Simulated scan of single mutants.
Amino acid sequence: MLGQWDNIMNFLMYAGVTLPMLALGIVIFMVTTPYNEYRLIREGANTDDPVKFAAAKAASHDLGGKILGLSLVLASAIYHSVSLWDLVVWGILGIVFQIIVFYLFELITPFRVVSEIPKGNVAVGIFASRLSVATGLLMAALISY
Rank of each mutant, 00 (worst) to 15 (best):
M1W: 10
G3F: 14
D6P: 05
D6I: 11
N7C: 11
F11N: 12
A15D: 13
A15E: 11
G16T: 08
G16S: 08
V17S: 03
P20N: 08
M21L: 14
L24A: 11
G25C: 00
G25F: 01
I26W: 07
M30Y: 09
T33Y: 08
P34V: 11
Y35C: 05
Y35M: 13
N36A: 12
N36P: 06
E37V: 09
Y38A: 10
Y38H: 08
R39D: 12
G44C: 07
A45Y: 04
T47I: 05
D49V: 13
D49W: 12
V51R: 10
V51D: 12
K52W: 06
A55M: 05
A55T: 00
K57D: 14
A58P: 10
A58Q: 08
A58M: 11
A59V: 07
A59C: 10
S60D: 04
H61M: 12
H61Y: 15
L63S: 00
G64T: 04
G64E: 00
G65C: 01
G65H: 01
I67V: 11
I67R: 00
L70Y: 02
A75V: 09
A77F: 06
I78A: 06
H80C: 06
V82P: 07
S83D: 05
S83K: 12
L84M: 15
L84Q: 09
W85P: 15
L87R: 01
L87W: 03
V89S: 11
W90H: 09
W90D: 06
G94W: 00
I95A: 03
V96K: 04
Q98D: 05
I100C: 04
I100L: 03
Y103T: 01
F105Y: 09
L107G: 04
I108E: 05
S115E: 12
E116K: 15
I117P: 06
I117A: 10
V124H: 07
V124G: 07
R130K: 06
L131F: 03
G136V: 03
L137K: 05
L138I: 13
L138F: 04
L138Q: 02
L138M: 01
M139V: 03
A140Q: 04
L142A: 07
L142I: 14
I143C: 00
Y145A: 09
